[in-house]
Amino acid sequence: MDQASEARGAGRPLRGLAAAALGCAGLAACATPMPTRLPPTASSQSTARPYSGPPAPGSTAGLRGTEKPYQIKGIWYYPKADRDYDEKGIGSWYGEQFHNRRTANGEIFDMDVPSAAHKTLPLPSIVEVTNLDNGRKLQVRVNDRGPFVDGRIIDLSKAAAEQLGYGRAGVAHVRVRYVGPAGKTPFDQPRMIASAPPPSEPRYAPAPRTRVYNSGLPPAQPAYDAPPPPKAADPDYVPSAPSAPVVPAEPAPVLAGAETVNGGAGSAYRVQAGSFANRGNAERAVAQLGEAGETSIEPIQRAQGVLYRVVVQAGPDEAEAFGVRDRVAALGFSDATVLRP
């Protein structure tokens, strides 16, 4: 009995310690907060951007070549038709480097024919491009992909950029609006020419002064061989307030030294083929431009000497003027420019 009592007495402290440890663990568990799922804050979420990763497997099934996603410089682009597409940005143009090469849809790129390149709109399709710097707009056929430069939303052919008035500048602020699908070939579309902005509202002009007669009608006048007497002599005439005297306009100055080589009158638009310091070179240019139209040499006096400018008359229509410019460029004067009236 004494040994059993001693064993039970020795185990009591151990059981007490175990109970105390269990109690402390329970208290600690109650004091520790449980993790919760908090909604993400705005700062923890990244800014929403268009998806630029690779397409999901099987997502391109049934799409033809120009409808499939493609990758340029590590970025994926997803072509699609967007009837509500209407965007503003920078427009550029491309020309000789890609002339006579294949476009993204297999056509032959001609820099002298209006066309355009876009990153995602269907090929081919029609878009309306407005030059926000001058108000001119043009409907053009999209048959290529690009431009792949930040901030640029469309790349036009050289001819289209010139019609919109930024061929020399290279870039312009433009608005691009999706119009609809295009014909299968470029020949299915009518020729497109840029339209000028609408004319500004005419200034108010006061109505002309009218003579007022007491009887309501002017007095009858007999037939005279000589001019009739002034109306102021009529007893029935009530003169109105005198109007301001009319000052005849001075005639426009004539450019001194202009020489017409092929004859003919001047026109509103002209095409400058080039400027030469040597008159003999200017005369050779005139001979070379015989097929382009009426050509003239305009001597321009400068501090460094006389400069001989060779110009071709282009007519009153601006679109026709750009056509003359293309003919002049085809004859070897690639820097030909349209001179506005």
Score class of each variant (00 low, 15 high):
Gly216Arg: 01
Ile297Thr: 09
Gly293Asp: 09
Phe276Asn: 02
Ala258Ile: 14
Ala258Met: 12
Gly293Arg: 01
Ser267Thr: 15
Val271Gln: 01
Val254Pro: 01
Glu283Gly: 01
Tyr224Arg: 03
Val238Pro: 00
Thr210Trp: 07
Val271Thr: 02
Gly305Trp: 04
Gly293Glu: 04
Ser267Ala: 14
Ala241Arg: 07
Pro227Ile: 08
Ala223Asp: 12
Ala282Val: 05
Ala220Thr: 12
Phe276Ser: 03
Pro229Glu: 10
Gly280His: 10
Ala303Tyr: 10
Leu307Phe: 09
Arg309Ile: 02
Thr260Tyr: 13
Asn278Trp: 09
Arg270Met: 03
Pro248Trp: 09
Gly280Gln: 12
Ala241Phe: 15
Pro235Arg: 03
Ala292Ser: 05
Pro251Met: 07
Phe276Leu: 03
Gly216Ser: 07
Asn214Ile: 11
Pro222Cys: 11
Ile297Cys: 08
Gln221Gly: 07
Phe276Ile: 03
Leu307Glu: 10
Pro199Ala: 10
Ala287Phe: 03
Leu255Ser: 10
Arg203Ala: 08
Asn262Glu: 12
Tyr204Gly: 11
Gly274His: 00
Ala277Glu: 06
Ala220Met: 09
Arg209Asn: 11
Ala273Arg: 00
Ser240Cys: 10
Ala277Trp: 07
Ala252Glu: 14
Ala287Asn: 08
Val246Gln: 06
Ser275Gly: 14
Tyr224Asp: 05
Ser275Cys: 10
Tyr269Thr: 05
Arg284Lys: 04
Ala244Thr: 14
Glu294His: 15
Gly263Cys: 05
Gly257Glu: 02
Val261Pro: 00
Thr210Gly: 12
Tyr308Asp: 05
Ala282Gly: 06
Val261Gln: 01
Ala303Trp: 06
Glu250Ala: 13
Pro227Thr: 09
Ala232Glu: 13
Gly305Val: 02
Pro198Ile: 06
Pro251Val: 06
Val286Asn: 00
Pro228Met: 01
Pro253Lys: 03
Thr210Asp: 05
Ser275His: 10
Asp236Met: 10
Ala252Trp: 08
Thr295Gly: 05
Pro251Arg: 02
Pro219Phe: 05
Pro198His: 13
Gly280Phe: 13
Val286Ile: 01
Lys231Trp: 04
Pro228Trp: 03
Leu289Lys: 00
Thr295Asp: 06
Ala277Val: 02
Ala282Glu: 02
Gly280Val: 12
Gln304Glu: 15
Ser243Cys: 12
Pro206Lys: 01
Asp234Val: 06
Ala223Phe: 14
Thr260Trp: 13
Ala241Leu: 11
Val312Asp: 04
Pro242Val: 09
Pro230Trp: 02
Lys231Thr: 08
Leu217Pro: 00
Ala220Phe: 11
Val238Leu: 02
Tyr224Ser: 11
Ser243Trp: 10
Ala256Glu: 14
Ala282Ile: 02
Glu201Ile: 07
Val306Asp: 06
Gly216Phe: 07
Arg302Met: 15
Tyr224Glu: 07
Ala232Lys: 02
Gly274Gln: 00
Ala205Met: 09
Pro208Arg: 01
Glu201Ser: 13
Val246Gly: 06
Pro218Tyr: 14
Pro248Ser: 14
Ala223Gly: 12
Arg203Thr: 07
Ala244Tyr: 12
Glu259Arg: 15
Gly263Tyr: 06
Pro253Trp: 07
Gly280Tyr: 13
Val286His: 00
Pro239Leu: 01
Val212Gln: 15
Gly293Ser: 10
Ala273Ile: 04
Leu307Thr: 04
Ile300Leu: 02
Pro208Asn: 02
Gln304Leu: 08
Asp225Trp: 08
Pro235Gln: 06
Val271Ser: 02
